[in-house]
Simulated scan of single mutants.
Amino acid sequence: MTPPTAQDGARERAAWLRVFHDAHDQARTLVCFPHAGGTAGQYFPLSAALGPDVRVLAVQYPGRQDRCAEPAFEDVSLLADEIARLLAEPQPASLPVLFGHSLGALVAFETAARLEHRYGAAPAGLIVSGMQAPYRRTPTRLSGDGEEAALEALLRLGGTDPAVTGHPELRAMILPALRSDFRAAAAYRPGSCPSLLSCPVTAWTGRDDELTPGDVHAWAEHTTAAFHARDFAGGHFYLNGFPPLIVEAVRTAVTRTTGATGQARTRTDV
């Protein structure tokens, strides 16, 4: 078997980690993880707003858009294995902040755990949004195991345009990956990697989401560093389109956490 080349590695990295805008040499790095059924492109407006001071890498999961020919992952742990490997090899010049929403929060958390405990490259920070802390979460139960049930659940949360339901081609494009993502979320159980992090953790939610304050604040138990919690007006997808308030919150969180590993533990709700 021919060993992989540097060019092969670059192609693999480009398939998984999308860069939409240029950043300067000293830019902080933010790695973004989409929600169930989501794509890297949903972080395009955030990348545009944060550049060039923050370099946004948006994860493109297999099984969607230009990766539709690849099988989608139905195991959060295996998905995190792949992403952590790509982020850790070679060792980055500066440690990234990881940011995940909904299912993406679980993938980001598991990726952070692997970076720290397997590769000795703890991220600078972790921002989780719209998700219960791993040991408190109640997996989403669909009314069925098929694609239609997954789409119904996403529509109920406001995660996609209802017009999709009447467009056969769009439905065919998103439903297989969406079903796999919901299966991954339902099957997820923490513990495949040590889950105590040494980086600061920031947890956000929409005020009209179904999460309780306890669900959000329990994320504090996953770090020995600083913990911050905040809520925003809106429901589960309060950050859709990344309006200015959310962009500035992300910018503040990235600035606050970059280089902050090893701080004494504090808890702040802002």
Rank of each mutant, 00 (worst) to 15 (best):
S195M: 09
A113I: 01
G100T: 01
A203P: 05
E110P: 13
R85T: 07
T223N: 05
A40K: 07
T257R: 11
A36K: 00
T165F: 02
P90Y: 01
G100R: 01
A186W: 01
L79V: 00
P62C: 03
E12I: 12
L157A: 11
T39Q: 12
G144R: 12
A225K: 00
Q132T: 14
A226E: 08
P3N: 12
Y135R: 15
R67I: 10
R156D: 11
A113H: 02
R230P: 01
R55A: 14
D208P: 01
S192V: 02
D25N: 10
W204E: 02
G191Q: 06
L95K: 09
Y238V: 05
R11D: 15
E110F: 12
A163K: 11
Q60T: 00
H101D: 10
F20S: 04
A40W: 05
H236D: 12
R189M: 05
Q42W: 00
R251V: 13
H236I: 11
R64N: 10
S77T: 11
P3F: 11
T160Y: 03
Y43P: 11
L178H: 12
A218G: 07
E152I: 02
D66T: 12
Y238D: 07
T261L: 13
F20W: 13
G37D: 02
P71Y: 00
L142M: 13
R114E: 08
A124Y: 02
F232S: 13
C68I: 14
A226W: 00
P96Y: 01
L155N: 02
D208E: 15
G191Y: 03
D209M: 01
A105F: 02
R267T: 15
A23Y: 06
A260E: 00
E248N: 15
F237R: 04
R256K: 09
W219N: 13
E82Q: 10
P96T: 07
T258L: 08
A23R: 08
E169Q: 14
T138E: 15
H228W: 12
A80L: 04
A72Q: 02
F237K: 02
E82G: 02
S94D: 09
H117I: 08
G191T: 08
E248F: 12
P3C: 09
V59Y: 03
R207K: 08
A249S: 15
L142V: 12
D215N: 11
V128Q: 11
R11F: 06
Q65P: 01
Y135D: 14
H228R: 14
A249T: 10
Y135N: 14
L157T: 08
A185R: 00
A233D: 15
P62S: 04
P4A: 13
Q132R: 15
T29C: 14
D66M: 08
L196W: 00
D25V: 13
E74K: 02
F109L: 06
A226M: 04
A150T: 08
G9F: 11
G166D: 14
Y119P: 02
T266W: 03
A48H: 06
A150H: 09
N240Q: 14
D231I: 07
P162Y: 08
L170R: 13
A253R: 04
V97Q: 05
V56L: 11
G241C: 05
A229V: 05
F237N: 04
R136T: 14
F99C: 10
V250H: 07
G191N: 09
P139F: 04
A69L: 13
L30Y: 03
T111Q: 01
P90W: 03
A14S: 15
D161H: 05
A80Q: 05
D269C: 03
G146Q: 10
L239R: 01
